[in-house]
Structures are given as structure tokens and as C-alpha cells.
């Protein structure tokens, strides 16, 4: 169940559209649900569908279409590395390999301690800053290679130990 706070935020999104087009708020509603629960469970999708008066499978279509929605629980910090061509040529591929080695996981996997999930991402529209990566969909790191990556991982690992980042399985979160 979504919290009253999340419901209120979803209602605010719904209010941005005409009354007969509640489904327009589906992307923001899913994002709100994901931020609160860390990922989109079947129950969460069902709840969003009933809030918006949409068939659940239509919400599911949206949730599976966009890469930023997670349909499985993730680690506290989800690192999405761009591996499209400009990034790949400018160190993106190397950055991805570096992270894989450092975290000991492949793309789409979560570290056993639940601190990190590594993802392969598509172009983030900042090829000039290549290589780029996203932290939890919101924070973008530019020129993210080599030592900078290690510092980032150290910083986030410490933050994860303090309980920051995305909520995991039933815990509350920011």
C-alpha cells in the first residue's frame, strides 16, 4: 500500500491533467510509487492502476517500456552506465568493466550486500561529458571514469551503510 503522502503526491500529478485524462499521470504515479517502495511490485502497479482507473496491463506496459522503472527490487544505489557509442568510445565501456570488477556483479545484478545494482543504460543526452552514469535515476555523474568511479562507489557504500538511498524490501526511506 502506498503511503498517504505518496497518494497526495499522485493526486497532485493527476490534478495537472483534465479530469477525464487521469491516465496521463501514469508515469509520474509510477515514479512516485517506485521512489517510495524502491521498486514496482505487482501490488504497486495494481494500486496505481486502480487510482488512475486504468487496466493493470496498460500500466504494466508503461512500467516495462521505460528503463528507469524497476520491476525487481534493486540495491540501495542503482548505477546506470551509458554504453551507447559516443560514451563507449570515450571510456564508457571501460567504466562499465571497471564497475563490474569493483562490484563483482554483471549488468542487471545486485551486489550480495544489497548496496549496489549495476545497469546498462542508453544515451543520457550528455555525450560531451562522456562517460556518464546515473545514480538512482536522478543524479548524473559526468566524466565518470577511473578513480572518480572508485571515489563514487566508496561514497555511496558509506551512504548505503547509513541507510540512505532507495528503500529496500519493506523499510521506509526518503
Amino acid at each position: 500500500m502506498l503511503s498517504a503522502d505518496a497518494r497526495a503526491r499522485i493526486d497532485r500529478e493527476i490534478a495537472k491533467y483534465p479530469a477525464d485524462q487521469r491516465q496521463s499521470a501514469v508515469m509520474s504515479a509510477l515514479a512516485i510509487a517506485q521512489r517510495e517502495q524502491g521498486w514496482l511490485s505487482t501490488a504497486a502497479i495494481d494500486e496505481v492502476a486502480s487510482i488512475l482507473g486504468m487496466p493493470p496491463v496498460a500500466v504494466y506496459e508503461v512500467a516495462t517500456f521505460y528503463a528507469m522503472y524497476d520491476l525487481k527490487p534493486t540495491g540501495r544505489f542503482k548505477l546506470t552506465v551509458c554504453t551507447n557509442l559516443p560514451c563507449a568510445l570515450s571510456g564508457g565501456a571501460a567504466a562499465a568493466e571497471h564497475l563490474k570488477a569493483r562490484l563483482g556483479v554483471d549488468f542487471g545484478e545486485t551486489t550480495p550486500d544489497g548496496r549496489f545494482t549495476l545497469r546498462e543504460g542508453e544515451c543520457m543526452g550528455a555525450c560531451g561529458d562522456a562517460p556518464v552514469l546515473l545514480v538512482n535515476n536522478l543524479r548524473m555523474e559526468s566524466w565518470a571514469g577511473g578513480e572518480k568511479l572508485d571515489r563514487l562507489v566508496d561514497e555511496l557504500a558509506a551512504a548505503a551503510d547509513r541507510g540512505e538511498g532507495a528503500p529496500r524490501g519493506g523499510e521506509g526511506g526518503r
Binding site: P55, V57, A58, Y60, E61, T64, F65
Partner: peptide, 8 residues
């Protein structure tokens, strides 16, 4: 709507 297209 019982069927939908998932993914892309």
C-alpha cells in the same frame, strides 16, 4: 484490456 504489450 486484458492483453498488453510489455517491454519495447
Amino acid at each position: 484490456m486484458e492483453l498488453g504489450m510489455m517491454g519495447r
